[in-house]
Each structure stands twice: as structure tokens, then as C-alpha cells.
Computed example of a mutant assay.
Amino acid sequence: MKTFQLNHPGEAKHDRPQTTWLSRLLPGLVLTGAITALAVWLSDFPSLNHLGLSALTLAIVIGMVVGNTVYPAAKPWCDEGVTLAKQRLLRLGIILYGLRLTFAQIADVGATGILIDATMLCSTFALACWLGQRVFKLDRDTSMLIGAGSSICGAAAVMATEPVLNAKAEKVTVAVATVVIFGTAAIFLYPWLWQLNAHYHWLNFTASQFGIYTGSTVHEVAQVVAAGQGVSPEAENAAVIAKMIRVMMLAPFLLLLSGWIARRKGVQEDGQASGMRNITIPWFALLFILVTAFNSLDILPHSWIPALITLDTVLLAMAMAALGLTTHISALRQAGLKPMLLAAILFVWLIAGGAGINQLVQHLFG
């Protein structure tokens, strides 16, 4: 015989306490903020700073440690705030990244520097897609994320590409891990290569040209700075400018990638090339360009720029912390060795192929 339980009117509605949007978001934002504060503090230590371990890198590492230990118990309260940090704060951070750049930096490096950067970006990303999917049989998202991180600006490029691909957190973390490992190796390798080249005269590099080579091939901005410092001040300046131009190419890259994905999706759905009408424009990439253009006008008071760049670093670090919190070690183990092998081959290409491309372009147009 069936039994029925009677509830008082409205009782079910009060089983869970009503909460405001702020109270739902606050715990997750406080947690990612605390991890960010620790990461920023640690990044100021000389020993970590010289290794090129930026606040972004440290934030994802700390986030992963917390995410795989105590975070599961706190997830019901923190999930909404962590999701906000991983998505909305990331986009805002990419937009504000334009405050680090000006169009005048392009003129400082010249047409050869732009051509070198563009060639390295296109060749490295194309190689990543081909090797990843055809040789290593990796999925499209993992191949593209590793390619974006290797060819543009490391973790920031991986994070900016994620919403265009709608990739899973563990795939993003695998790609960021490759940037950390091989970008850190580059910090020690490039000054050594400079010394070897000075001794054996393999390639005709001045300090400034070697700086452009460094900026066009090393993954992260912080890693470029550390590698350039190991060569000379002249090399460091050229390396940073070349790297900033490479970073500026992130926005057109995202727009082209979004268009390509929409076109492929349209072709698969109806067998026509009409999918272009379904393009999802990454508006944060367009706003990134606008902020860069605005910064180039030199309207903002110079005293504001350091504070805004610090805010940008905090936003990006919170997004990285959120990514770490939502990444499980088991998912990284399931990714296996293939992503690292792909990143290793790209690393060799950046060093050897990058040296060849730098020499060829400098010879033809320098």
C-alpha cells in the first residue's frame, strides 16, 4: 500500500536557506584571492623570480595542491565564485593585458621582428595541430591549447584560447604544465646557447638579434625576461619588445581561430560553408586590441599604469588559481605522456627552427 507524506505549504522552498548572489560568489572569490595573494608574495622571492616562476604559474600550482586536498569539502560553497574567476575574471584579465603593450613597440623592433614573430606563431601552431592530431592521436583541443601556449605567450594564451574552444579544465592544465616545464628550461638554456655561439660562432647573432630570437621563441613573458637578463641588457630589451609583439598577435589569432571553428562546425552540420554566419566572436580579444590602442595614445596618467597592471596580474592569477582548484590529478595522469612529447618537439622546433628563421629573415630583410 502506498503512503503519502504531506508537507506544509512552502516547506520545500525553505529546505535550503535563500542566499544572495554575493554570498554565493564570495567564498570562491575569497579562496582564489587568498591563493593569488600567496602566489604574488612567493613570486617576489629572488630564488623563484630568477627561475621565471611568475605569480600566474605559482597560482595554478598552489590551486592544484588545494584542489586535490581540501577543496572538495569546500566546493559546495565555493564553486560559483571559482567558476566566475575561471571565466569572467579571465576575460577581464586578458582585456587589461593590453595595458602592457603599445603600438610604438612594433616600430622599435621593425618589420623584421614582426615577420619573425608571425612566422614562428603560424609554424609552431600548425606543427602542434598536425603532430598532435595526426601523429600522437591527441584530441583537437589539447593539441591546439599546447600549440597556443608554445606559439604565443604561454599560460595567458592557453587561458585565452580555452573559451574559444570551450575546452575542459584538465586539458587546459596539461597545456599550462607544458609551458611551465619547457619555458623554465629555456631560462637556463638560452644564456648557455648565447655563450656557446659566442665561442664557436655557429650563427651570426648580435646581442639585440639574439634578444629578438629569445622573445620570438620562449613561452612566457616572465621567462623571456629571465632568459634575456642572462645574456645582456641589450638582449633583454629586444627580447621583451619582440615578446610583446608576439603577445599582441593573440587577439587576431583568437578571431581567426573562432572563425575557423565556426566554419568547420557549419560544414559538418549542413555540408556547406555557411557556418561562417555562426561565428562566436571572442569580444574580449577585440577589447584587448582597443585597450592596447588606447594605451598607445598615452592618455592615462603614468602613475596609474603600474596599479592597473598589478590589478591585471591579480585577475589572471585568480583565474589560474580557479583552474588549479578544478583540475584533478587523475585527469592529468589520464592525459599520459603524449602531450609532453608534443610539447617537447615544439620546444626543439622553437630553438632550432626559430634560430634558422631568425637568421634567414635577418639576412633577407635586416
Rank of each mutant, 00 (worst) to 15 (best):
I245L: 13
I245G: 00
R246C: 05
R246M: 10
R246T: 09
V247P: 00
V247C: 04
M248N: 05
M248D: 01
M249T: 08
M249P: 02
M249G: 07
M249F: 11
L250Y: 01
L250I: 06
P252I: 04
P252D: 06
P252L: 05
P252W: 07
F253R: 00
F253M: 02
F253E: 00
L254N: 00
L254M: 09
L254P: 00
L255V: 06
L255N: 00
L257V: 05
S258V: 04
W260Y: 14
I261A: 01
I261W: 01
A262H: 02
A262I: 06
A262M: 09
R263Y: 11
R263W: 11
R264V: 06
R264T: 08
Q268K: 12
E269W: 08
D270E: 15
G271E: 10
G271W: 10
Q272N: 12
A273E: 15
S274H: 14
S274W: 13
S274F: 13
G275W: 03
G275A: 08
R277E: 09
N278I: 06
I279A: 09
I279Y: 01
T280S: 11
F284D: 00
F284A: 03
F284Q: 03
F284C: 04
A285N: 05
A285Y: 02
L287E: 05
I289D: 02
T292H: 03
T292A: 15
T292I: 10
